[in-house]
Write a protein that binds this DNA or RNA. Sequence first.
DNA 1: GCCGTTCCAGAAAACGCTTTCCCATAGGCT
DNA 2: AGCCTATGGGAAAGCGTTTTCTGGAACGGC
Lengths: 353, 353
Amino acid sequence: MGRTTGTTGIDDVARAAGVSASTVSRVMNGRAGVDAALAERVRTAASSLGYRPNPLARSLVLGRTQTIAVVVPDLANPTFQGMLRGVTLAAARDGYRVLVADTSEDAAAEEAIVRETRQRCDAVVLCSPRMASDVLIAAVAALDPVVVINREVPGIPGVSADYRVGIVELLEHLATLGHRRLVYAAGSPSSASDAARRAGLADFALARPDVEVLTVEAGATFGDGAAAASVVVESGATGVVAFNDLVAMGVLASLAAQGIAVPAEVSVVGFDDIPFAAFTTPALTTAAVPVGELGELAWRRLAARFAGEEPEGDVMLRPELRVRASSGPVRTVISPAAGAGAGAGAETGAGRS
Amino acid sequence: MGRTTGTTGIDDVARAAGVSASTVSRVMNGRAGVDAALAERVRTAASSLGYRPNPLARSLVLGRTQTIAVVVPDLANPTFQGMLRGVTLAAARDGYRVLVADTSEDAAAEEAIVRETRQRCDAVVLCSPRMASDVLIAAVAALDPVVVINREVPGIPGVSADYRVGIVELLEHLATLGHRRLVYAAGSPSSASDAARRAGLADFALARPDVEVLTVEAGATFGDGAAAASVVVESGATGVVAFNDLVAMGVLASLAAQGIAVPAEVSVVGFDDIPFAAFTTPALTTAAVPVGELGELAWRRLAARFAGEEPEGDVMLRPELRVRASSGPVRTVISPAAGAGAGAGAETGAGRS
DNA sequence: GCCGTTCCAGAAAACGCTTTCCCATAGGCT
DNA sequence: AGCCTATGGGAAAGCGTTTTCTGGAACGGC
């Protein structure tokens, strides 16, 4: 009756307008078949009472909440921030709200978190780079309206960036600049998108047997990159492609601290094109992953699903190479001219093995 | 009955366990006074049926959703990302979910957005730097369990960073380095935290009449900073304190493009200490605003409120000066020694008026 | 041995809405 | 004039829980 809670309910409006609750409901939802005068009376009563239908009650009877969940592993990561933003904005445009969950704290409890969250929503977009494939497949089945980002699950719509071809573009870019000995500062082996990158590494190895690509385990954070820099240096590689921009920035920072010139001595490229990649020193060459679009697309798939459309196959967005200042021609051992040449090499690093 | 929707409901469990729904409810909620054997039977039935109580129905009857809303003006801004993360993590620890809303698209509709969002939740954390004060006060009244971030609303708990003293710290830092002519690259005049900064400017003017501080209108983004850089240069100031780190980075970029050395010719400092402030070139001196803590504190106030505690006064966090490489001693017009001195000045900019 | 307690469990009433079902009224048709 | 069909609005049955209220059974005290 609304009086219990202090909120004005549909019955209050009905009473004020001298009609039944059914009629109020019909008017509020724009259902046809209500006398114009009556409808007007209801609207007046509703607005003068400041009536707002309780969304919870609506959700319960309607069976939909007008809300979706977005589950990401780490809200501190620019990539996931971008995705979250993409789906939030797109969903808002269609009148949907977003419930956000960060699973970082407890990767083991991830499945429980996403299930619990899912119950309050109409669907979920799941971004879980690390969940084991079999666990993921099992978990996702119970989530039904769901789209996964950067994962492949049979029968489930997914939107991904093509990390595999992206990393090949990066490698080719360096190869074209003359680099013949590169290192890949890898992400976590349990990361699905890292696996895609490694597949790209293999593709590249076949295509360009003349270029050597070593792999060093790094991680996904700035710190991981900084830590990996020393082994990059020791490897004697002239170029490093990092798991992502964060790692690349770590490498950059560590290299700078060691007085190693980028790109004169070592080229370093990242992956993702996070908002700050353009502002590192030197500005980071990277493969741009359109995270916002990824998020928006995820929403679109969900919206289509809500509209009853049949799901099509997965969509894959191709990263775009962004050449900036952190990559350059391979250093030459020939005596440097102190001129204007961009890639004029210093011999400083010559003795490194 | 649950059968209609395909979901297993409480009645299904009741039937399976041969008890009434009331008993199932009691067991599921750990209410005392249920025979142990019976309780066990219910638990077995529930888990074998994979029963999960519908949170919507619970919310409706309980009158609480176990969800709070976080409303921010722009999910692309690192500051708000940090706050969102802070409250999300803290709330999750206490079993609460977060509904996120980005109001950027339509500042006029902000009030409607927050009201609508609020209805689905138990409370809201509102971060609305630009809403006019009177509108805010009126709007916030209808939101009751609410905490505002970086705004002062009488009678409403708020958590803020002390931008006023923060900017004074920054100014004093530059004054100490010998700067006597500074410019403040201001944010939007409609921004509450910009008003606080300007109040700080006034405080500083009183305390240090020997230091001149000009104000130029800039904005809150990288682009705004870049655009403002030229007028900074023309002003002949030796130091600029930017509205925030983004603006500072814009200034930095534009200065670099013009070949003006930082900090040798001009010092620039930011505000916020966003994650990337440490990685600009040169690394940005700034006043660190603990956004994560701000968010966490906001949650705490809400949690306390839920627990029935009385609200205390507003809390204000003091920004912490982080001196990095973008600020240095004022340039000297005296002939530079080509030595190791950090702030050895170039005369390049001497003619600027 | 009877009555008053206590303990448990089920029936039913909310929570605030939507929607189906049904009835009344008015209008058109033959 | 009588009947049949729109048309509009009200009553009531949900949606899936929680919780109060009620009642039956077992138990203890006198």
